[in-house]
């Protein structure tokens, strides 16, 4: 079960993609560059990311980012009070959660998550290191991987 090409980025990774670059940008560039990959999110997850972006930059940038990410991501619903990244992965069937949160990387958390969702929690750098476009393309789409098919800056 689960969508091997679906990724949830927690609010820290979403904000770092915009404002810090580094591994968060590298990881989400992979998603942006492939039309057959999906970024999953929830409104509650985006609320957190928008608040973080506003806190460390400005409200205008946060609002424009929110509009862009809402257009780009597939939005799923979950109950308030759930961890937004885990809940979005659960409800959307994502196989990957990207976060800098070491608590989510912890062994106990990983087991709990796997019991509920067939997903793995990764640091964005780990996701980039392990991403195998050729084999994933063959599994998701079929045939030979043609390379990135979307402009990650569009």
């Amino acid at each position: 079960m689960g969508d091997v090409a679906a990724v949830v980025a927690d609010a820290d990774v979403l904000a770092a993609d915009l404002l810090v670059e580094g591994p968060a940008r590298d990881a989400l560039d992979i998603v942006r560059a492939h039309s057959w990959m999906t970024l999953l999110a929830s409104e509650l997850l985006l609320d957190d990311a928008t608040a973080v972006i506003q806190a460390v930059s400005d409200a205008g940038l946060a609002a424009d980012w929110r509009e862009k990410i809402t257009e780009f991501a597939t939005i799923v619903d979950h109950a308030a009070g759930d961890h937004p990244a885990i809940a979005a992965a659960y409800h959307g069937g994502a196989r990957h959660i990207l976060t800098f949160d070491e608590q989510l990387h912890g062994a106990a958390a990983a087991v709990t998550i796997r019991d509920q969702v067939e997903t793995s929690v990764k640091h964005p750098a780990g996701f980039v290191r392990l991403f195998d476009a050729e084999s994933l393309y063959t599994e998701v789409v079929g045939g030979d991987y043609p390379g990135p098919d979307r402009d990650p800056r569009a």
Binding site: D12, A15, V20, G22, A55, V56, S57, W65, F100, A154
Partner: peptide
Amino acid sequence: MSWADLFARAGAYDVTESEVLAALEARRNG
């Protein structure tokens, strides 16, 4: 608005990963 435009605007801020994590921690655990 393109990602390129957003990233260009964001580049005006010198934000670190630690600041992002602290802001999220403050929001979620207040």
